[in-house]
Design a protein around this nucleic acid. Structure first.
Lengths: 225, 225
DNA sequence: CGTCGATTTTACCAAGCGGTCAAGAACGGG
DNA sequence: CCCGTTCTTGACCGCTTGGTAAAATCGACG
């Protein structure tokens, strides 16, 4: 049942695009620097405006660069966006991957929550970029969700079910547990404005409070009595 | 400390716009029908593409209407978006408002979770519209967040703290508890594509499972032992 | 220092965008 | 069935957008 995969295939297949001319894999210093500045600027703009809402001009401005110059490094708007998603995917699932089947369940879950929350604190733009892509219906990430993401969740769900079978955790649907951890942690990145408005928080204290709250919420609910 | 409120003022002040001509408050049947079709179509487009990404042409097409005709009923793109947010706000906070200080804590929290989850199931586009507005930095809803929303959360946080003081609930930061309920329930609307990809769920069964999971997660973590 | 590829910029284009206008079509109360 | 009002439309406008062409400039290496 492998359907049309044409649109998103390159998210897995394509190598990082080099400037038109330099197909020879050698990257100059300037190429690396400028590609980096573009990605940084694009992350800012795409994460705020979404794919359609962002413009090449905005990105070029933010990268302190002329539009044609930007297009010298990337063949088009979509390729910049695609490159961002591709880079994001390299690390996005690491916190879940790091959940160790041989570890102590409560410790592993606490660690997962903490790592996810640190990502929300340190990479809020990446979180919003991902959220925006999903909310659009995941036109580029669809296959990734149904493929690698689902596989990883299935694998970790089995681990959690093992812990439940051992009596180490209260019986819960492990997939919904994973959703709940995703939702609560990413909330602090994606809905940052709302969180800050409610807490009228100036510093980063909310992340510390959130960590304490979430660890207790999940663990007290998960550890058998 | 009431700062600049010009940009978002009309979200509170302005009455629903009538067609240019008909400033006289009487609405004809056609006006009601067409305004409704526009709102419906706009909700579809804005919730998928975000404010900047959506175009009047898309909305007009979806409403089966010419662009100038749409602009006969609304003075511009932003006013359509604004009208949607305004209508949404009328009911968006109802589930939290309905949390009864005199009720049984566990029952009230379970009820709140259930109502929020029902909203995610029945009004996913509204949820995504709201999420998109917040993720952009809430340019139109900023004052609402810092004003009415914060007030309501403060009020209900006090209620929860009362329950804690009575020993009916484990001591938790009530604001983070509210965030957690928002996040976990809205997740099923905003990240619907991802949820369906992971569960490969065809029907609506995931909402039933989510309700069971969330009620147990929160309550087992909240009720003292 | 000269040369050749790498880089940057200026000028440009076609399509898409939000919005206007004036004229025509449909409606509904008398 | 008449006529003022409401509704609808095609043509159009100025600006923005994604993207291109080609010339000008830079810079590293012999």
């Amino acid at each position: 049942m492998a359907q049309h995969r044409a649109p998103e295939a390159s998210l897995i297949d394509a190598p990082g695009r080099a400037p038109r001319a330099a197909r020879t894999s050698k990257r100059t210093r300037i190429q690396r620097e400028n590609a980096g500045r573009i990605m940084e600027a694009a992350l800012d703009v795409f994460s705020r405006e979404g794919f359609r809402g962002a413009t090449i001009d905005q990105i070029a401005d933010a990268a302190d660069m002329s539009k044609p110059n930007l297009l010298y490094y990337f063949p088009g708007k979509e390729e910049v966006y695609r490159a961002l998603l591709e880079r994001l995917l390299e690390t996005w699932l690491d916190p879940l991957r790091a959940m160790d089947p041989k570890g102590e369940p409560a410790h592993e879950i606490r660690g997962y929550i903490r790592r996810k929350l640190e990502m929300a604190r340190d990479y809020p733009r990446e979180s919003r970029l991902f959220a925006g892509e999903i909310m659009r219906g995941a036109p580029l990430l669809g296959e990734v969700l149904r493929g690698p993401l689902k596989s990883l969740v299935d694998e970790k769900a089995a681990v959690i079910e093992g812990w439940i079978a051992e009596g180490k955790l209260v019986a819960h649907d492990p997939r919904h547990l994973i959703f709940a951890i995703w939702a609560t942690t990413q909330h602090y990145a994606d809905f940052d404005v709302q969180v800050r408005a409610v807490l009228d928080d100036e510093g980063e204290g909310r992340f510390h409070d959130a960590a304490r709250f979430l660890e207790r919420l999940f663990l007290d609910g998960l550890v058998p009595r």
